[in-house]
Write a protein that binds this DNA or RNA. Sequence first.
DNA 1: CATGGTTGGTACAGTGAGTGCAGTATTTAC
DNA 2: GTAAATACTGCACTCACTGTACCAACCATG
Lengths: 205, 205
Amino acid sequence: MGHRPNDQRPLGLREIQRLETRKNLAEHAIRLFKAQGFDETTVEEIASAAGVSTRTFFLHFPTKAAAAFPDHGERVIDFVDRLMDGAPHVNPMFHLRVVLRARLETTDPSRLARYTLLSTVPELRDEDSRTDRDYEEAIADYLMLHWGREPEAELRANAVANTVIGVARAALSVGGEHGLDVRGAADDMLQRMFGSPFDEPLHSL
Amino acid sequence: MGHRPNDQRPLGLREIQRLETRKNLAEHAIRLFKAQGFDETTVEEIASAAGVSTRTFFLHFPTKAAAAFPDHGERVIDFVDRLMDGAPHVNPMFHLRVVLRARLETTDPSRLARYTLLSTVPELRDEDSRTDRDYEEAIADYLMLHWGREPEAELRANAVANTVIGVARAALSVGGEHGLDVRGAADDMLQRMFGSPFDEPLHSL
DNA sequence: CATGGTTGGTACAGTGAGTGCAGTATTTAC
DNA sequence: GTAAATACTGCACTCACTGTACCAACCATG
């Protein structure tokens, strides 16, 4: 059903070990960031805590900060997949809302907690912003698939993308900060902002 | 009229020279970034082009990227000043719109061009995001001044702030890219998104 | 199994951003 | 005219990140 083969290869011993060290690196990185702070943790510390060399760290993550968001890549891919699924046939704003809602609802709370904890560390904000930018780009591209690439459409698409991600970020940070579930409120705000097209009942939920 | 003294000291010889070197550093930095790229330009190059030592560069800018946005600090301060001016008496969303519109209209085109050129360089996006975060924080703080700091108000304030900045960023980037003036369209989008309170005529313009 | 290409990891040397510190020289304040 | 303040310098240092050559384990092929 996905628009690209969800490649489920047998996963040999090599891959398993690779993923293992990657997971180890990420876990130790996050643990150390929380324990002693981002700036106070060196890549060498993380690497040796995970039992590998410093150089190996950079074979798995492009920057020190990236280790704090280990599954970012696959999550963006997953998001894009869901967005593109059955793309050309539905009202794009409606579909966007469905995908967003599904994503929010299937995001497990432990992830929310970790996410917001990390957003609190100022040094990781940059990485977070880069994450957001990937989503914004994906959403804008999707909308322009429907609306075209004339400047007016491009403006609308980018504005909507930035707005959606902006509201989501606000919900995640405020919700995480107070330990509240504000996902409904976020959805509600978006619904009000984007008016009637966003107003339709969600049959597929 | 500002909520803090707009200190206009006599500006001694020392300050003049300091500002001069700062301006020089920023100009050479931007010139070199455009000419040869961000990563291909070292701080030492910038410094020696401006006729000062490398160490001096970091007395003026905290990072290499910051030199590309030399007046960011004062612009944020100016924005906050205008936001806080006569703050408690008006409808906050209305006032926000007035300030935003005024800021957009008084932003000179050369600045727009430079801004968007820089936003194109991926290595400067982070700095740009940090800039945006300062504005978002200012707007959210302002709105919470009126709405209080309960979680619901905080969510709304942050969502509005992120939305406003998101739309502004979209307008700047798309407008800059195509050489179009999309400020009116941006204002229009915000007006539609935020409904009636944003709908009032702008007497002060 | 043998064997050879592929690949995850290592060692080492290097670049460049950013910081702390101990100065020097000029400006400004009294 | 002297002393405090400050813009700037030089130097030594840490640490993130990269290029390169290399090793060893894996895996596909015969």
